[in-house]
Amino acid sequence: MISGTILGISLLLNMILIYKSKYKFMLKEFAFAALTSLVIVPAFLWILENIISVLVTSIFVIIIIFVLLKFVFIEKKDNSASSKKDYMHKYGDATNKNNESATHKSNLVEKEKTKPEPPKSENCAYITDFNKFAGIKLYKVHGVMHDYIATDNGLVDRELCSLSDYEKGKFHIYEEKTKREIKSEEIPWKK
């Protein structure tokens, strides 16, 4: 242990002294020789002798990495699709409510790929199939505490935002497909 330490220190001291002198190039040649004879040539020989195993193993590793990457990629896409689904569910998309299936999920993923994601904000709502058959309708409702805008999907009414916020411009409602903002005049009062 002690002799090993002494050897290391003395060799290091000599190397530093030589490195700072004009014999630096000799030290470089020495390092090159040591690296070649002790590391590069044995490693190269090992690779040459195991070339078949090395190739097969590297192909396996590449395939595994590829599969893992693909899995992670699909997982991410699925997450984004499901978050979109939650978002739609929040604003009462009842037409799609009963049709939750894997195919629909994959369709959503494809849609995600083709169009850019709408800007998400807490003060925005995106309405799918606005005023269409089996779509969502919007109404202004006189509430007990305050007036509000409600969504109606044919089954359930749900409060979307307060009317005063909407008219002051604090809350925006957009049509999901066209990204057109739905104005206050387009929303009738509930009878």
Binding site: S37, V41, P42, L45, W46, E49, N50, I52, S53, V54, V56, T57, F60
Partner: peptide
């Protein structure tokens, strides 16, 4: 097949140098 050589590295004759 491929499984036969997968991960089967031999030292071969590298011990001549190592």
């Amino acid at each position: 097949g491929i499984v036969g050589v997968f991960g089967k590295f031999s030292d071969g004759t590298t011990n001549v140098l190592s």
